[in-house]
Design a protein around this nucleic acid. Sequence first.
DNA 1: CATACCAAGTGGCTCAAGCCAGTTGCTTGA
DNA 2: TCAAGCAACTGGCTTGAGCCACTTGGTATG
Lengths: 257, 257
Amino acid sequence: MKTPGPSSTQPPSRRIAEELRAAIEAGHLAPGDRLPSERALAHQYETARNTAREAIRLLAEEGLVTARHGSGVFVREPQRLFRFGSDRYSRSNRETGLTPFRLEARRQGKEARIDVVGITRERPPQDIAERLAVPADEESVLHRENHYFADDEPVQIVSTYLRWEEAEGTPLTQPRTGKDGIYGRLEELGHVMTRVRDEITARMPTRAEATVLGLPSGVPVLEVLHTSLDQEDEPFEVSRYVHRADRTGLFYELPVE
Amino acid sequence: MKTPGPSSTQPPSRRIAEELRAAIEAGHLAPGDRLPSERALAHQYETARNTAREAIRLLAEEGLVTARHGSGVFVREPQRLFRFGSDRYSRSNRETGLTPFRLEARRQGKEARIDVVGITRERPPQDIAERLAVPADEESVLHRENHYFADDEPVQIVSTYLRWEEAEGTPLTQPRTGKDGIYGRLEELGHVMTRVRDEITARMPTRAEATVLGLPSGVPVLEVLHTSLDQEDEPFEVSRYVHRADRTGLFYELPVE
DNA sequence: CATACCAAGTGGCTCAAGCCAGTTGCTTGA
DNA sequence: TCAAGCAACTGGCTTGAGCCACTTGGTATG
């Protein structure tokens, strides 16, 4: 008797995908291994190449596998995570002179690079305007966009928004913001970071993000909307972090009650 | 030529996708609207149906659009988020008698339902074993699996792991754990939750998760690995939350320094 | 020995056709 | 009036063919 399970009713592409998935999960196909070529699979399962191709697409969508044009389809290697702890905003951390990103990169023996992509005065997106308490219909913010790389591979996009009226004419509008970075300058403006709020969601990348981050299909992004509050509980900085999810872990530790 | 023109060099499927995407982002196609049928698109762009189909697949992968068999392809409606704050573990919250999930569901005017899917003694997965400080090669944990629904739509899967030696013979092994739920019972066992650790990642769902959560393609999941620590800083409970990302927002607020 | 080149292999994308399986709304008959 | 049934839509999946772009490794050439 056949398994009355999914396998009998399933379309061929699903069945092929299922068997490959099983092989991967069982370790018969290890991370980095190449799958049989589309043509080989098609022949092996006595089906059309498009059907084998479809099976591979299903696995790619799940993030199990990625295709390299001209070379083959490979089992995805588990990526070492960049871990960002809730202590990443702490001052003690800042005093090491290393940003959390550089610290983490060093821990992994990788070279960190941060590109300043743009520093412009802008009208803020709605969500930013709300959190920074500025009008959304004026050019009320300074927008700094940075791209972060580890060994020249992009891992995150960060957009930082500051009140234009505060940032205007300060080093905050310059690529190099000086000692302790923007938080150093913001302290001089009277904002001591005393509390942070992080709002976290996950989604599929936009095309632009997929391009910048070099994301293969099947890799979502983590979006963190971060708000810094000062000693008077006023928000003074809001950032949007877009991380590639397969390389990022967030870590929050907090007291209860 | 390095950068091929936006639309000139692009394959037809990409071009169709791009135009549809633009229409969606411009609001010409509003959330809930139906896209032209595959056959109509194919005709309109003078291409094969498979090519139009491919274009739609691209949009579905981005999460912009979902197909309904027999009915059409629709612009995805932005989902109201279930927000889970960092206060969700606090005792004051617990004393309302409502779990954070029920609270949030009520806030949205939806009916919450929690199914107890299984309560079994098991060998813990590696990551759980490490965090709960139990051996991974024995049946050292009690595993409670729950599915959470809002208006009968599944939104999260929760696996809670407790030390078997503690849980054995207590109401923790029963579907109904009594007043204040498992944390109430754990307090009676001498564990007062004083600190929590949440480790957050995002990924594409496994097939099983996609099935349980009824996920269309293009929706990732948020995975939260939660550890509760007691007054002696000992971990006494570990849970794995799997949320559908398009309905979930996590919210952490913490003091700095 | 180094380099340029090329052939064979790989995935990327398309075509045109067909059948299947859900959904929807109209028609028809009780 | 209402329900059953059906036709005309929708997307789901497959076939088998072809061309293109990229990668790889061997080979001929300088």
